[in-house]
Computed example of a mutant assay.
Amino acid sequence: MAVGRAGVAFEVSHRPMVVVRDLHRSYGRGAGAVHALRGVSCEVPRGELVALRGRSGSGKTTLLNLIGGLDTPDSGQATVDGTALADLDENGLLEMRRDRIGFVFQTFGLIPILSAAENVGVPLRLRRMPSRERDERVALLLSLVGLADHMKQRPGELSGGQQQRVAIARALANQPSLLIADEPTGQLDAETGREVMELLRAVVRSEGVTALVATHDPHLVGLADRVLELNDGVIQEGGTSPALNSPGP
């Protein structure tokens, strides 16, 4: 058993966090059908930051949506934290997304009228966490992402990088096992994007979270522990990143 900087205990296991076997997903029918995934198989090791790389339209978002339980494959299976998503009904998928998977998107998705702290606290309110415990958890998470002094500011008062940090803190609110990030630096400049990617890597190492991050930026790929590359709907492991042998941020 290990304990992260936000005071959360987590277990160390050698079982992969994500196992994908022969996933197929198409959109449309007949000659106009788009075959987004053509038999994708891969594993995401527990406790690593894994980059999912591929050109635009390669199927990265489709794969993330299937692993996150936001979409259903035509065939094949995805298993997250030992649970086969195909075995879950709608309520089971909802609980999986709420309790065990955190999502970070390119567009941040923050509620404009709420402060940074209130945005991070939304998932905890939905779980009816007592207010004192919720406030403590929110404060810990905003400290973790370097925004302890910006708790009361609204998204419009924050930079793009700060907004994405709030989004990451919100995704971690319910202590997920898996963090899924779809082009989380797509709207940021190069320097800020690198800072966000370094933050994700630090979160993985300190909180025991596994992160699967889709990115097209080759400089950010170099910060990952492992790289998976999508090519024409088929995924191939691109090897181990130098990040494994370099000191953390």
Rank of each mutant, 00 (worst) to 15 (best):
residue 79 T to Y: 05
residue 62 T to E: 03
residue 218 P to L: 12
residue 215 T to V: 03
residue 129 M to Y: 13
residue 234 V to Y: 03
residue 241 S to K: 05
residue 118 E to Y: 03
residue 40 V to F: 07
residue 69 G to A: 02
residue 71 D to Q: 00
residue 27 Y to V: 02
residue 169 A to P: 07
residue 1 M to Q: 12
residue 68 G to W: 00
residue 104 V to M: 04
residue 182 D to V: 03
residue 1 M to N: 12
residue 38 R to N: 15
residue 28 G to H: 08
residue 113 I to K: 14
residue 84 A to L: 10
residue 120 V to C: 04
residue 242 P to Q: 14
residue 133 E to I: 09
residue 107 T to D: 00
residue 116 A to F: 00
residue 138 V to W: 02
residue 223 L to M: 11
residue 199 L to A: 02
residue 73 P to N: 11
residue 113 I to T: 15
residue 53 R to W: 14
residue 40 V to W: 03
residue 146 G to W: 06
residue 62 T to L: 02
residue 211 A to V: 05
residue 240 T to F: 13
residue 139 A to H: 13
residue 44 V to F: 06
residue 214 A to Y: 04
residue 231 N to H: 13
residue 104 V to I: 12
residue 50 V to T: 14
residue 223 L to V: 08
residue 152 K to L: 10
residue 89 D to E: 10
residue 75 S to T: 12
residue 181 A to R: 00
residue 27 Y to A: 01
residue 155 P to C: 09
residue 65 N to P: 07
residue 189 D to S: 07
residue 240 T to M: 13
residue 65 N to F: 00
residue 80 V to H: 02
residue 93 L to P: 02
residue 237 E to F: 07
residue 241 S to E: 14
residue 236 Q to E: 15
residue 53 R to Q: 15
residue 244 L to T: 13
residue 192 T to M: 07
residue 56 S to V: 07
residue 56 S to C: 11
residue 123 P to T: 02
residue 16 P to C: 04
residue 80 V to S: 04
residue 3 V to S: 12
residue 243 A to I: 07
residue 184 P to V: 01
residue 240 T to N: 12
residue 5 R to S: 14
residue 112 P to Y: 11
residue 199 L to R: 00
residue 32 G to T: 12
residue 181 A to L: 04
residue 196 V to Q: 02
residue 74 D to W: 04
residue 170 R to S: 01
residue 90 E to D: 15
residue 64 L to P: 01
residue 124 L to I: 05
residue 106 Q to P: 03
residue 197 M to K: 02
